[in-house]
Amino acid sequence: MSKKRAKITEFVKYTSVAGVGTIMVIPFFWLVSASLMTLNEFISVPPKWIPSNPQWHNYVDVFQHIPFLHYYINSFIVAVSVTALVLLTSAMGGYAFAKLDFVGKKPLFRFTLSTMMFPAFLFLIPNFYLIKLFGWVSNYLSLIMPFAVSAYGIFLLRQFIMSIPPDLIDAAKIDGASHFAIFTKIIIPLSKPALATLAILTFIGQWNSFLWPLIITSFSPQMTTVPVGLSKLSLAFSTYTNQNLILAGMVLQVIPVVALFLYMQRYYIKGIVLTGFGGI
């Protein structure tokens, strides 16, 4: 009796997981399928599920009909630069908060944590004003600098560096190593797992970032990133006719993130579990 009941529970479990799983997959399946359709297939009523003849050249055309390569390069430069800066500033701050003793340490650390509670919207207007004041609107600094420091990154590295045994640092000090040498020769190499977690979270967060680039690019279109570029074309549905190409662009937008995720899954999941966010 109880065996039969357990079997029923198993059945319910698998069918519900598979059922909801199907709903999760369908939009992606449709995206890839539609990106290979001709325009006529794409706009046909009722909708087609599978292209009769996959149009692989859509993935080449997207680079010719849309300045897609330009968007891609912009996104890549911004995401890589922000990631590099965040890693550097987080490691430096994390080291100071974890291993150094200084006046004002506690209040400064509390202040750093409290900055995480402020909604991003509070910063749009003042930061835009500053960027304009600094004359950065039409260059990459406008997209990079407001994200160069991450309170979450500092917190993550501080927690990790605190777990590095003090003996290692003391031994280096006796050998006459400077604080700078300790930082580059001991702290950085030992913090690699935490840095990897932070790197993947920051890169994906920036690659997917939308609101700030949307504001900047409305003043300097040459700064257009992939999400902003595709969204503008997509919203101009009636005037822009190559909708199927936008879908090819979207697949190309998602590929680096999925690849990075599959390659560094372990670190990414660790970051998610620690923060609760898909990005920063």
Binding site: M24, V25, I26, P27, F28, W30, L31, A34, F42, I43, S44, V45, P46, P47, W49, I204, W207, N208, F210, P227, V228, L230, S231, S234, I246, L247, M250, Q253, V254, V257, V258, F261, Y268, I272, G278
Partner: peptide
């Protein structure tokens, strides 16, 4: 998978899916 997909792409994809005549 949807979590690492840019929210903008998610919005665009579902925008097509919800299309009254052509959407699935």
């Amino acid at each position: 998978a949807p979590t690492i997909t840019p929210a903008v792409a998610v919005g665009m994809i579902w925008g097509y899916l919800y299309n009254p005549s052509r959407g699935i």
